[in-house]
Write a protein that binds this DNA or RNA. Sequence first.
DNA 1: AGATGGTAGATGGTCAACCATCGACCATTT
DNA 2: AAATGGTCGATGGTTGACCATCTACCATCT
Lengths: 216, 216
Amino acid sequence: MESASSLPRISADSRRALVVQALRRAIETGEFQPGDRLVERDLSAQMNISRGPLREAMIQLEQEGLITTYPYRGTVVAEISAEEVEKVLVPIRLTLERFAVGHALQRLTDADLAELQGQIGAMRQAAAAGDVTGVVETDMRFHEILLERAEQPQCLQIWRTIAPRVRAYFHRDAYRHGELANVAHGHDALLEALRRRDPAEVDAILQAHINETLDL
Amino acid sequence: MESASSLPRISADSRRALVVQALRRAIETGEFQPGDRLVERDLSAQMNISRGPLREAMIQLEQEGLITTYPYRGTVVAEISAEEVEKVLVPIRLTLERFAVGHALQRLTDADLAELQGQIGAMRQAAAAGDVTGVVETDMRFHEILLERAEQPQCLQIWRTIAPRVRAYFHRDAYRHGELANVAHGHDALLEALRRRDPAEVDAILQAHINETLDL
DNA sequence: AGATGGTAGATGGTCAACCATCGACCATTT
DNA sequence: AAATGGTCGATGGTTGACCATCTACCATCT
């Protein structure tokens, strides 16, 4: 057999993980709006899964700040105010990413850099197609790769609880169609700096890059 | 009936919430150490609760960074490195609390200030008794009251996912018996500043107060 | 000796039935 | 009219049985 690349990769995710991903995405993309009620029995029936793993998924999403559950009363999609994004989420993200990139910098392999380059390519394609979701996901995935390479477990864990909110914000407010193309451009500069491996330069570009989020 | 104060308040917490609290506390206080395995069936039997709510509790604790679950393989108590505390948790905590206190400052009632004073009193008693757990809890509860009064839901939610790690760190590394008494003292200064309601003063004292965490 | 395949035990994942809480609404009492 | 008590529907919480995955270990084949 020459290559198995035409065969599908079989997901190892649990059913619960698949529910998390689907619900998270629906919230990030705005299909579910702040204030919308999420009723376990309804979602369970709709998604063909029993209530147990669905509940588990919802507990995770609550810890990600995407939903708020009131015991015995119901669950609603959470509001994420622009002020909290600007004053809380973005600064926290800066703290996390600056720390992680400092750690990842000397550990990045050629394969890592190639993967980052691949995300930029995918970002460009998504932008050209006007695919906001694609841009958001590749944008954040670029950063997540750096967080993973840092091998600082708490830092990555916190980043992952913050990231869904950041993605929701990007979907809602941060990108306009005419500016999608600029997103990949910003990542070019960051990748070039990563290649040069000068910590101060990388840090400065990273800060500018993330703070740009607020100017979009 | 003159007063119902001699009757116990009946907890409205679900069984799952009680499990969260018990496990969280065991981890924070060091009864469960990083690397220890937590086996659902064992804990379930030990705590007289079925596996469902125990699993749910563990999902929450994982999102709080206290444990790490490997699908089908088991769960271990997570490591929280001193570096991540210093470079990640403390700066994040600063971001959160500075934002929240800015919002809470003009909303604090006399009852709030009295409650804060009460926490300081309890902190003192705990310190005098050499009760590290008591000091940690009253210390953090003091701050949580301010976060709650800020009425910024995402800010509070993130703080609550960080706080267990901070408490674990305090238990493990931050307090020494001879220094317990100083903890209440630091809160006195902060409360006085809160009473004067000068934002810049409060902010400066809050920063110094939290950064002191690193000098203990 | 190395590669491959199978099994069993340990542990987690899922299901459907049943239990528990909450608040809106209605009825009764004061 | 206001206060109190009861009911019911909506929704979440819990249980125990069964299912699924993973890996260590052993057996067999090359």
